[in-house]
Design a protein around this nucleic acid. Structure first.
Lengths: 224, 224
DNA sequence: ATCATGTCTGACCAGGCGGTCAACAAATCA
DNA sequence: TGATTTGTTGACCGCCTGGTCAGACATGAT
């Protein structure tokens, strides 16, 4: 039937431009990420959310219905980004010296570039993960199992010590995300209003070294 | 003048039993620690706080005035406990193998025994530490400086690698507190409703090994 | 008894919260 | 063009929030 050419995918209703919806939703989601990261779910108010988005409050309800649905939309957006780092680095083909270092650096870069996403995730976990428990138990758990297998393989191959793979991952997540989540503490201790690139690079290399040496990763063999 | 014998210290007014005040305050603080840990400052309500304490709402206001003052009282209680671990373990007399391992184990024990305290602290940091920023910049920073000196001393003495001491501390805090703060994630990934003692011991030893090997701590010399 | 002091609490309040809705503007379809 | 759907918004609502307060109650000194 005569659907217009534009609506290729993801436009269940509305025959023509869903671009307005997309634009407004993106605008609201971006604002919401900032506000939820600063104030948390309970601390944020719809009025504050609307003001940050530069739209009337009723408009947010038009697009997302309730505060909780808006929050969940923000969460889903974050989770999508969350999973991609691992598959690039924690793979059997790589040497652990490269894989673990790359993964840690990717996670640190995440904490640097998108601290708000990390903070929203942290807040959700702190409250017992009421909105993402099912995701944790399925998607995340599955990925962790896969990554743990890779790491165990590295150990068996004699490329590194036999470290408990899952707890190693917890440790890596903790060390890297702390620079986003608990930034206030780090700034206070370092006596800086903002963490500079140099300081962050120092942090990154400290964590990388801690992980590589901590896992007893052997020097990678040079490819012929 | 004729103050009764009981009021030895800390009873500025009231001639007789200040024990009632002490008891009620302790009861309220204990309940508040639980509720604030579960729901955060914004999520918790005075009604919920009162119900958990088993007292009428007005009673909480009688003793603490406002929700914020109650919250701050809870925070202060936590901070007092927070500082004591370090001074016992991160001291020049000890070998780093003993000092770092002991410190990590103490922090892990803290996460195990008093996860609520850790979560309240984490929530406060996540929101930018509005109530404890001055504490972080004074007390905590001072202690960190002292600890960093000890660690740097260990490195100079050739007892361990020259690891950046402050970032090492951030890493230790992150790895240990993650077992309290993000317990939901850990339980979901491990597919357990509760983390057992055995699993927690595994976690502890994983972190201890990661830190000791990661810092290149030499084997401690035996005392004659 | 009387009084002073501290403790306790039900009833109440103003304000802000998330959410609704009717009416209106804009865009797309026929 | 008119018809129909989608987007926009100010005004409004009921509820729950943190906080108040007058007065009941307990306790010990005089």
């Amino acid at each position: 039937m005569g659907k217009t050419a534009e609506s290729a995918a993801g436009a269940p209703r509305g025959p023509a431009t869903a671009s307005i919806r997309r634009t407004s939703e993106a605008q609201i989601l971006a604002a919401a990420e900032t506000v939820f990261a600063q104030s948390g779910f309970d601390g944020a108010t719809m009025t504050q959310l609307a003001a940050t988005a530069g739209l009337p409050k009723a408009n947010l309800h038009y697009y997302f219905g309730t505060k909780e649905r808006l929050y969940c939309a923000v969460l889903e957006r974050i989770l999508a980004l969350w999973l991609d780092d691992a598959v690039e680095w924690i793979v059997p083909d790589r040497h652990p010296a490269e894989g673990l270092a790359g993964y840690v650096r990717a996670k640190m870069a995440h904490s640097r570039r998108r601290p708000e996403a990390s903070r929203i995730f942290a807040g959700e976990l702190l409250r017992g993960a009421p909105h993402i428990m099912s995701y944790l138990r399925t998607d995340l758990r599955q990925r962790v199992t896969a990554m743990a297998g890779v790491i165990a393989g590295w150990s068996k191959a004699g490329l590194m010590d036999p470290v408990h793979p899952v707890h190693l991952l917890f440790a890596i997540w903790a060390m890297t995300q702390t620079y986003a989540d608990f930034d206030a503490q780090i700034r206070a201790v370092l006596d800086k209003t903002k963490i500079g690139d140099a300081e962050f690079a120092t942090a990154t290399e400290t964590v990388v070294a801690l992980v590589l040496k901590g896992c007893g990763v052997r020097a990678p063999a040079m490819e012929p």
